[in-house]
Structures are given as C-alpha cells and as structure tokens.
Design a protein around this nucleic acid. Structure first.
Lengths: 177, 177
DNA sequence: CTTTTCATGTAACAAGTTACATGATTTG
DNA sequence: CAAATCATGTAACTTGTTACATGAAAAG
C-alpha cells in the first residue's frame, strides 16, 4: 500500500515517467522502500485510472510523463497525517532468537557479519551524503533528516553487534571452564 | 518465508500446538515477527506435510502438539547459516521524505508522535525485561541480546526524533525572518 | 448455565516478487 | 550496425491480512 504513496510523493515533487520513477526509487528510496519495475508500471496505471495522477506529456518510445492531480495531493496528505505505521518485521532479529540452534562459532559469524555490514552501510551512506548536492527545499531538508536516521541506525547496529559478540564470548568462556 | 523458520525455531526450543505457538508469538516475537492465527495453522499443516514437523501428542479439543524432526532442524540451521537478510522496508522513514507536502505544524506533529512512541516502546520493553525470568539457556541468552537491540533502537529513535524537531524548528524560524 | 478460553480450520483479498515479453532510440 | 539505454506492459507465484466458521472444555 505504501508503494502508491511513495510514487505519489515523488511525482508531487516532480512529474516523472515510469522509467524516471524506477531510477528515483533506486537512487533515493532504495533502502527505505524498494520498488520493482513491474510494480511501478502496474501502479501507475491504477493511479491514473483513479484520477490521482494524470498523463501530462508524451515523449519518444511511448514515454508517458505523469503529474499529480489535486485528488492525488489530497490522498498523499491524508496518508501523511494518518496513524503512525507499525514497525516492520525484522528477520535479522528473528534469527538472533534462534542462534542457539547452531554452533557457537557459526553464531559468532552471524553477528560478525552484521557488524561488518553495518559498518559498510554507514560508509556508503556517508559517501552518498557527500555526493548529493543539498538544496534547501523541502525534499532536501527531509531527505537529510531521513539520512541522519540511517547514520544513527547503522552506528547503533554496529555497536550493538560488537557488544553482543563480547557477551557471547564471555558466555562461551564461562561454559568452557 | 521467515514465518516457517520462526515456527521451527520456537518448536525446536519446545514442542507446541498451534494455539501455544500463537501465544508464544504474541508474547516473545510480537515486535519482531507478528503472526496471525490463520497463518500459523496453515503453515503448521504444510510443515508437517513436508516432514519438518511431526504430531507427537494429541490432547482434548482436538489439540495437536508438534515437535521438530531432524529434517526440520536441518532446515532451521540452514536458514540461520544463510546469507544476511536484507533490511526491511521502512514506512515510517518513507513518510519523512514527503513531509514537505503537509503544513509544517503537521510535520512537527508526526515527528513528535514518533518521539512519544519511541519513549513508550522503550518503557514497555524495560517492563517486559524486568518481568521475564531469565535463564541461562540459549533461548534466554539470545533473547536478551535481541532485547538489547530493542532498547538501543528505541533510544536511538527517540533521540533522532528530538534532533529532527530542533532542525525543523530552526528552519521554520529562518524562513519566518 | 453462561462466559471465557482453548482449539482448529478455510476463503477471499491485497501486496510484493520473479520472470517473461516486446520494441524504439541513442551512442560508439 | 551492434550494444546500451530507454520505455512499457503482463502473468504466475508467494506471502501476508481479514474475515468467516465451528465447536469442545473449563471456570465462575
């Protein structure tokens, strides 16, 4: 359901074709709300049929550029003002619960991989942050706020994984005695 | 797909009926991997048909108790040792990107609600932590590690939301001038 | 004897993924 | 002219949600 709002939000910022949207999803929303090509085109048709988007230009190779309508804007605002979304399922944590089912060494590897990935993700995010040319429009402002969340999130994960590895090592030691 | 492993993991720890599983999901995995009654019973049937679980006891009111089989254990281990899961979609953050589409006051309310909820979730988690009687078995050990993640996560979210509110206020002030 | 809890199951729907399928235009 | 990029669309499948449907046993 959020896909449609992601699309509405991007198009509200700037009119786009399906292809444009696909690139924009990849570039700016990949880590927040991935979308596939197939999904985007299907939803585009539905949104246009519902009157939330309208084709405002056509280009070569059948390119259709969509713009948001007033109804679309209203729908977007309603979503933004709605009840807080519930936190998503977390497969990474689910696995942690069951780490007792594998050998301690393998469990350690899992946590170590999480630590490494968090570190890498953080580095990538910082690169991206440096590469983007930040405006002072709404989209940039809130984009920076979202990015700040990512930085804090990855840093937290890294620290937690490191802490967990220590806890696990300590427990293994005590057992060894 | 993870549902089945969540079920396998719980049953590996202790044989359970569908009803038991439903309670256990609610009690310990609700925030990590919610599961509905309908899903659980459907999957239980499939897992038994696939030989990953077996009915090892029957009680009153048609109660069937399932235990994990060796094949089931192997399947669980394989999942645990597999590639890292990708981070989930994040609707909460997706909304942040588009906060420019509503009035500043409403955007402020959204962030304030996030802050409040994080604080509340953290408090609830700490209550739960105090209520559980922690063993030193695997399940408790990794349960505590997962809970630690929750604590850090909610704290991080609260701090971030507070920071974002300041950023937003500052920007509004600058614009007002 | 009434309500709550225990207990299981099915069906319709919504959202997301993967794979298939096609073709025009631009660039080297 | 060959390859890359632009551009759109459909179908089958998987996962998850909501609602429907039923009934036995325990507790007050």
């Amino acid at each position: 359901m959020s896909l449609r709002y992601g699309m509405l939000g991007l198009i509200a910022d700037r009119p786009s074709s399906g292809y444009d949207l696909l690139q924009r999803f990849k570039k700016s929303l990949a880590n927040v709300w991935p979308a596939t090509q197939s999904q985007i085109y299907t939803e585009l048709t539905k949104l246009a049929a519902a009157g939330l988007l309208a084709v405002t230009d056509e280009g070569p190779r059948g390119r259709k550029e969509y713009s948001i309508t007033e109804e679309g804007r209203a729908e977007l605002r309603q979503w933004l003002a709605g009840a807080l979304p519930r936190p998503p399922r977390n497969e990474m944590l689910l696995r942690v619960f069951f780490l007792g089912a594998i050998a301690p060494e393998q469990a350690r590897e899992y946590m170590a991989a999480l630590e490494t990935r968090s570190e890498k993700s953080l580095a990538e995010l910082l690169d991206l942050k440096a590469a983007v040319d930040w405006d002072d429009d709404d989209f940039s402002t809130y984009g920076r706020i979202a990015m700040e969340w990512g930085e804090r999130y990855f840093a937290m994960n890294q620290e937690w994984a490191r802490w967990a590895l220590k806890e696990m090592a300590q427990r293994d030691n005590e057992r060894g005695r």
